[in-house]
Design a protein around this nucleic acid. Structure first.
Lengths: 347, 347
DNA sequence: TTCGACATCTGTAACGTTTCAAATTCGCTT
DNA sequence: AAGCGAATTTGAAACGTTACAGATGTCGAA
């Protein structure tokens, strides 16, 4: 039976990593002076500051995160709260990349805090706040009256939301104008002569679902078109169910001749469904779908798409939380991407 | 001009978060005793241990990560190193979810460390090791003689690779048997009477590209089929280029009547290309493709697929690094998923 | 020559944790 | 009755950082 002979982790100094003490020794100064000099504090002589900074730079000094965090409470971490039940072809990688990209030039690290959609969405947020494990949070799948937003706002914890809420005016966010998307989509379908449209909307509870439906209804009225109700399914529904529901939809007497789809992934199932029901895309019916990958036009030549850039969203969200952390003016932390056109197949 | 009146972050105690001191006070014990009691150290009286644990549990004590980290060097963080230039429909989200899922039941946090494929892949790894910002690393896109593996192994830094290397025998990994995939694919194509096959392989430098090509060549020989060389493109190539190259490929005299594709995303472009060249999938040619989303069969009914589960990969990788961290036996930290069948369209 | 004002610099303490060496208690042995 | 050892418990120190309150030195004014 052998004893755990774990070779205890070396301290920074032991590992040859320079600390303030190292630099203090090298420069012959006190630790305090070095600390302040590295922050360019004015009460340190200019020459001393330069000298310290030079040495620090030469020896590759990096502040020990644990030290800073323990002393100041600043974690230099931002937490991205993610729903782990995201649908196929989800945008997640791109958001993550976008956030990383922005954050790369800062001392911040990105940590992923997962939760299951069907569990309590407050859980991860509470965890981060209660344990103080990050300086800021990014949340998505916002609902109009979002308890997470209330919770975070009440405590003054810096955050940014992907999607708007009713409390919009008071917190940083980034959003895609889904209302505009739906209007563009409906108008395009109207232009090509479609008369009765269905909408595959996002999960009803989410804020942007309402936006989408509003834009859809508005443009429908404006163009004088009819709606073919497509209930029971949302962009969160499984592909199999969407396919089945689409078959059912197309067999109705008042079937649609146009569909607006909020989800690129779901559009695959939509098309599969309508083809299974014996209809032909571009012939009997047209679809305008949002997409974030470029895959839909390869999928079916006739599909119309509106692109949503999630990497950009990630970048904006990162900018927003960081801004929130050092209390930048709110207006600069809110952004909305308005889609400007539908990409339609060549004639 | 207003002074920065930042309301300095409260300490744990100030914020009402219990610390060891709090519990020590409540129980009337010393801080040391409390610390040890919480770890169930045998030298603390049984009753005391129980008592301390009860109180800790009641007040919701959570060890301060910065404190632990500063004192012990243990970060309770694992770093997932990601290539931010990943192709469309990348597997990234699923890996992230898989890792999160496994890690959720542990004190570990997941941090994403990004890098650009065309920059130095050593950079992120060096960063993590030098700054000691994690207890373990997961890397992917491994090459046979991977400098990152050498670097990490030399320093005894715990890690796991997604994909194997030449130093296989000496480090934890998780991999999908791409050689088996290629063999299955070729055999299926042979079964349905295809004679000349092309392979869309992963980027040549990656270990699993070699595996794929080996399996492909082997099964080709075994079945007595010919190869239509498909050079210049890999699974990393842009979809546009793949599409163009496929058109070119199909216009050759010795065009393939079967393609094995290592990437679900790329298969979209493959199909688009061959259709643009005037050929018909399932008629003139068949494709067997790996996929991680379920989208391909919806895309074209005739496509044959082999599923690769990246969420599982994430879980296994997490298990592997954690194992590496507390020096579990190597064998238990290596796993290989062998695909067992090709899912072909209904007749 | 002394003194204060200013510019620079510095030691100490503290953040929350764990480790080390030592202290205390208690029951037994002799 | 004294001493010993085992079982428990403990304070002090340290990890690397920053804030606070002082210390030191310089220089010009009186």
């Amino acid at each position: 039976m052998d004893v755990d002979q774990v070779p205890a982790k070396p301290t920074d100094a032991e590992a040859g990593r320079p600390t303030l003490k190292t630099i203090a020794f090298m420069t012959g100064l006190g630790v305090t002076t070095v600390s302040r000099a590295l922050k360019d504090a004015p009460e340190i002589g200019l020459e001393t500051r330069k000298r310290v900074q030079l040495v620090a730079q030469q020896v590759g000094y990096r502040p020990n995160r644990a030290g800073v965090r323990l002393r100041t409470g600043k974690t230099n971490v931002i937490s991205l709260v993610l729903d782990t039940q995201e649908q196929v072809g989800s945008f997640v990688s791109d958001i993550v990349y976008g956030v990383s990209e922005h954050i790369a030039q800062t001392p911040y690290h990105l940590i992923i805090t997962p939760y299951a959609r069907d569990k309590d969405p407050m859980e991860p947020v509470r965890y981060v706040v209660e344990t103080g494990s990050a300086d800021g949070i990014i949340i998505s799948r916002t609902v109009p009256n979002d308890p997470r937003v209330r919770y975070l706002a009440e405590r003054g914890f810096p955050f940014a939301t992907h999607g708007r809420t009713q409390q919009n005016a008071h917190h940083p966010f980034h959003d895609f104008d889904n209302s505009a998307f739906a209007r563009l989509a409906v108008r395009r379908l109207a232009e090509i002569g479609r008369k009765r449209l269905a909408l595959l909307a996002p999960a009803a509870s989410l804020t942007y679902s309402q936006h989408t439906r509003d834009g859809f209804a508005e443009a429908l009225a404006e163009a004088g078109l009819a709606e073919a109700p497509f209930s029971g399914v949302t962009a969160d529904t499984s592909l199999d169910e969407i396919r089945a529901a689409t078959i059912e939809l197309m067999r109705r007497e008042k079937r649609p001749d146009g569909i607006v789809s909020s989800s690129g992934g779901a559009s695959f199932a939509l098309v599969a469904g309508l083809e299974a029901a014996g209809f032909s895309l571009g012939q009997d019916i047209d679809i305008v779908s949002k997409q974030s990958f470029g895959l839909l036009p390869l999928f079916r030549r006739h599909i119309h798409v509106v692109n949503e850039d999630f990497r950009l969203a990630g970048r904006e969200l990162a900018r927003a939380v960081l801004g929130a952390i050092d209390s930048a003016p709110l207006e600069s932390l809110q952004s909305l991407v308005v889609p400007s056109d539908v990409v339609s197949p060549q004639r």
